[in-house]
Nucleic acid binder design. Structure first.
Length: 599
RNA sequence: GCAUUCGUAGCUCAAUUGGAUAGAGCACCUGACUACGGAUCAGGAGGUUUGGGGUUCGAAUCCCUACGAGUGCACCA
């Protein structure tokens, strides 16, 4: 049994034996490091029922546990805190159960599936920093849910229709002289983005002219010939006009080629891609259904609404008076399709927090419609990424392009390597080195974006994002290479055969405090995965990886592994070292971050 | 205006969901064995958790209030 479960059971037993009562749930917390022990039980809540001071209760339960619990070795009670130390032999058994279990940390299959929708790019411009936070979050959450035992479907909904793409198309028609990404030597998505910017420029010039001629600005924005043409193009596209559709297809092909390249670089993939060009008409049948069920109502002008004031929301339009759909209509339809396609009772949307209201409304509607999957819907809402110079605004050109950023972090990793230990890379080929530096650079970037609580708005500081010291991805990657290096030396010395294997437990052991601490941390891994899954929070695992790496480095500095004369001790330390390395690799992979063996 | 999220060291973030003297990293200062990899480790300095009130054994966390910041409030997506 898990130590923690054992302890909880024993504490419950102690309370019932000593006081003839029980408590609902025993909760344990890690002991603060200035006190002895690793688990702490808080006795304050018991004082009222037992009419005893908290430290007395602690003393009594502690003494009982020391006597009767198979795992507790020593205790101390300070105020209302009962701190428990665990027997070293028990720790070694825990270590052995970790070593003997290659899938340690992966939770049992749940026979339940979940769809995670993320990324959702627009086809009129390349990906930027904000998309990266979205992609990394979505990818990592998918991996975490999978480790929690779910079947995961990673889905991407591409916003490939609408006025924005017509703007790029129109600009291309007018200004391109038939150039292609190949002839321009550009990545397809950047190529399309260039025309989107060109449209915006020309459009603004038109507005300015109209305003100078005395027109009201708002009117000018609508009346500008370019906007009129773009609207016309959208109409043609919706009517299936051949020329328009084939231009649209051509431009899509280019932009997707660009996206694919970026996705490949950042190691993100999808099981299913939905295109709004296929789904934008969906949802009208849902509106019909809702009208029949009396969930929606029709106004005199024929528009359809839902009244959500009882949920603290507003009245919301779900179908226009001319019978065409709005965003909500489409989303209702798409959600049904997703459920039909995969039968996932849980669905997660990774979408920025500016859409909080939209999702509140969507989920409320799904609930009223009685959708079976409604309770399993979750909006993983994440905050915006700010720059030191302020907000990112695409119109003002203050966006950080994803491809540029990836290049920069890779270069920074290469520079850090130059400074740190140039000679280490002598026996690597150039392509090996490139791959390594990209792994480190991306590790830095992903970790930087994932370590922050998703819901919080965050500041992106370029200098910090490429840092390799301190609380960073490369620090953790480095720690992994340390464990690998120790392992390799141990194999050379004949101390190890290579595989992770159980160790013989000596009769008498005295573990170092940091050894206990490390095994304790390792034993927490499954729980951490469960917590991170329940909270949809990769940041929790990022913190865990850091704790593990930091503690290992302390251990490494304070305790000799290979130079320990006592072979049994050395083997215990090696086993811990291997288990830490292995676990770091696993945790990082749940963040979508690879770790090298050498760096 | 209404709704909603947030405010923690100079800066960027934590705080096991109400627990002990609020912890890390960066930046700054001081140290580390002729060493298992120094992309490391040890130490120092840095806090009235935006202000005020309340709830209780106990509050960064819950409630009220003021101030400050973000976002949303289209028959756009």
């Amino acid at each position: 049994m898990d130590i923690q479960d054992q302890l909880k059971q024993d504490i419950q037993q102690a309370i019932s034996t000593l006081y003839g009562t029980t408590i609902d749930e025993v909760t344990l917390q890690p002991t603060k490091k200035e006190f002895e022990g690793l688990y702490t039980f808080v006795t304050f809540p018991l004082t009222k029922a037992l009419r005893k001071p908290p430290h007395v209760i602690g003393q009594e339960i502690g003494a009982w546990l020391q006597e009767n619990s198979p795992v507790v070795s020593v205790f101390n009670a300070v105020q209302g805190f009962l701190n428990l130390s665990i027997d070293d032999a028990v720790w070694l058994n825990v270590l052995n159960s970790i070593l003997g279990n290659p899938t340690f940390g992966t939770l049992p299959k749940k026979d339940e599936s979940v769809m995670v929708e993320f990324s959702s790019p627009n086809t009129n411009k390349p990906l930027h920093l904000g998309h990266l936070r979205n992609n990394f979050l979505g990818d990592s959450v998918s991996r975490i849910l999978e480790a929690n035992g779910y079947d995961v479907v990673k889905a991407c909904l591409v916003n490939d229709r609408g006025i924005h793409i017509c703007k790029s198309m129109l600009a291309y028609q007018k200004f391109s002289n038939g150039e292609t990404p190949e002839s321009a030597g550009m990545k397809g998505d950047h190529f399309i983005g260039k025309y989107y910017v060109l449209f915006d420029k020309a459009y603004k010039a038109e507005i300015e002219q109209l305003v100078a001629g005395g027109m009201d600005k708002e009117v000018a924005e609508k009346k500008a010939p370019l906007m009129q043409e773009a609207q016309e193009m959208l109409r043609k596209w919706e009517q299936g006009d051949d020329a328009t559709v084939s231009l649209w297809k051509q431009m899509n092909e280019w932009v997707f080629a660009g996206f694919d390249e970026t996705y490949r670089k950042i190691g993100v993939s999808f099981d299913k891609t939905y295109y709004e060009s296929n789904t934008y008409l969906l949802g009208k049948d849902v509106v019909e259904e809702g009208l029949e069920k009396g969930v929606f109502y029709r106004k005199d002008d024929n528009s359809v609404w839902i009244d959500l004031t009882s949920e603290g929301l507003d009245q919301k339009l779900v179908l226009r008076s001319d019978g065409t759909s709005v965003y909500m209509t489409q989303d209702l339809g798409t959600t049904d399709i997703k459920f039909q396609d995969f039968g996932t009772n849980r669905m997660v949307w990774v979408v920025g927090n500016e859409q909080d209201y939209h999702f509140n409304v969507l989920f409320a509607i799904l609930k009223r419609l009685g959708r079976s999957y409604a309770p399993g819907c979750y909006h993983l809402s994440y905050g915006m990424v700010d720059l030191p110079s302020g907000k990112m605004k695409s119109r003002e050109g203050t966006v950080v392009d994803a491809d540029d950023l990836i290049r920069e972090v890779t270069n920074a990793a290469s520079e850090a390597a130059e400074q740190a230990a140039k000679s280490r890379y002598d026996d690597m080929s150039e392509s090996q080195r490139d791959a390594l530096f990209r792994m480190i650079g991306l590790g830095a970037l992903k970790y930087y974006l994932l370590k922050v609580d998703p819901q919080k708005r965050m500041m992106f500081n370029p200098a910090e994002s490429v840092d390799v010291h301190g609380h960073t991805g490369p620090f953790i990657q480095y720690t992994h290479t340390r464990t690998k290096s120790v392992e390799a030396k141990a194999i050379q010395n004949g101390l190890l055969t290579g595989e992770l294997t159980r160790i013989a437990i000596p009769e008498r052991v005295q573990l170092h405090e940091l050894e206990q601490q490390l095994i304790y941390l390792l034993s927490q891994y499954p729980q951490r995965i469960a917590d991170a899954g329940a909270a949809y929070a990769p940041s929790q695992l990022a913190q865990f990886a850091y704790d593990l790496a930091k503690t290992y480095n302390q251990f490494y500095a304070e305790v000799s592994i290979l130079q320990e004369p006592d072979v049994q001790k050395a083997q215990i330390r090696l086993a811990i070292s291997q288990a830490v390395g292995q676990t770091i690799r696993k945790v990082m992979s749940l963040l979508g971050i690879e770790v090298p063996d050498k760096m």
